[in-house]
Design a protein around this nucleic acid. Sequence first.
DNA 1: ACGTCCCGCCAGAGT
DNA 2: ACTCTGGCGGGACGT
Length: 465
Amino acid sequence: MSEEISSSTKATPTMQATPILSASEAKDDPNLRKNKSLLAICKKFLEFYPLDLPPGTNTDIPLEVLAEKLNLSRRRLYDIINVMESLQMAVKVTKNLYRWYGLRNVKKLLDQLKQLSDQNRLQELDNLDPGYLSSDLPITPCEAESPSEKLLQNLLEAKTVKKRPCLLSGLKESPEPKGPLTWKNKSLGGTCLKFLTLFFKKETVSLDWAGRVLLCGEDEDNADNKSDGDADTTKQLRNKIRRIYDVANVLTAVGLVCKLPPKECTRRRLFYGYCGPVIDNLHSGEKVYVPSAEPTGAGRRVRNTLAVLEPKSGTNSDCKRKLVLFSENDFSVSKKLCKQDLGTKELSAFSILLAVAEEERLRLERAANEVKQEKKDEKEIDLLCTENQLSTKDLEYIENREHCELEGVSGRSALRSLLETNQPPKSVFADSSSSKSGGQMLRKGQLSIPFRTNGPEIMGKCSSL
DNA sequence: ACGTCCCGCCAGAGT
DNA sequence: ACTCTGGCGGGACGT
């Protein structure tokens, strides 16, 4: 059975001639590259396995069935599952079977990672048995919440499944440091965790920089300065970045990171920001990126919103995110600043970035309000013109003169001031090229609103000045 | 041209 | 011998 499915899913879906599709059809067309991206298939995966699985509930993930459901090759599922597994969102139960936990363990995992990062102990992980962490960091990926959890533990202990040392896992006595998920090795899971730890150092991470760091060890400070070196190093870097793309796409689907607005980042480099759960020890004022509900365009670029933690009250976990009104469109920060300061030391650079962004936001907000007010005025004045059959030229004339007013008119400030001046209109019309004498150009019966003057009130209509 | 990342080869581990 | 797993890099795609 499993062989049948396995072989069928193993076979790559053939490239059929793609018929011409409408936009809506194209959206679901499985042959379209963008619909085959890890991000897209990961989202489909999450339709079957929700992130917020209630505690105590477990869901099994039979790989071959899922591959069939999603119309995927198993190979792609492994990419996703490996990342999920490193995040302790899923655990392997047996061949072709994983158990789904959703996000329930992720915050703890990140807290641990953050803790280690704060203690500068991440480097140590390269040289340690992964089981090392279990004693002082008691988190487990699958805390025995139910008998089935215990069963799972037992299964693991009994080695009925291939035992996989799990980073930060707390899976007791992982006896096989050579296992596939050590910190040091090149697994997608290890890459995933390492990538995430970079967000403890910088708020925004370019894949290029991440690749260099992951390739050169944990030497973040010097990663930027490292030259590309020989062709071999370049090749390695390219491959590392490829893997980080894989990881980043899964993390994006899961909602832990998100792509940043592309236009402000250096050159064509893609930057990611952290947008996962608030991590303990994250100080108030630190920022996380919160992706807006819907990605734009083809899904390759995500509109983002910048969120700032409100001042801490009580425990760290009391920190709440407060959305600030940033969107991709008004997120305008100088490239220079971005280049120079973005993510240098701790948070200082980002604080600068935030300040600049905030300033820009306020400026745009003011501009938007002005435009809004102007539009409102325009509307009122248009209405006024319609009601009184005033031409644009009439209005210009009136606005530019202090000597007349329009009674009962509100809206444009110039007109309001005119209302207060109580000046004779004849001086207005005296300048009119089409007017021979003050007020005479007002045609009889044309004015439906009274022009009050110092002199006698003239009833008429101001037109075609 | 170059960033992005899909695809599947193939090797190692497990059965 | 066969399957499962997943590192890896060629090269297609998108901008």
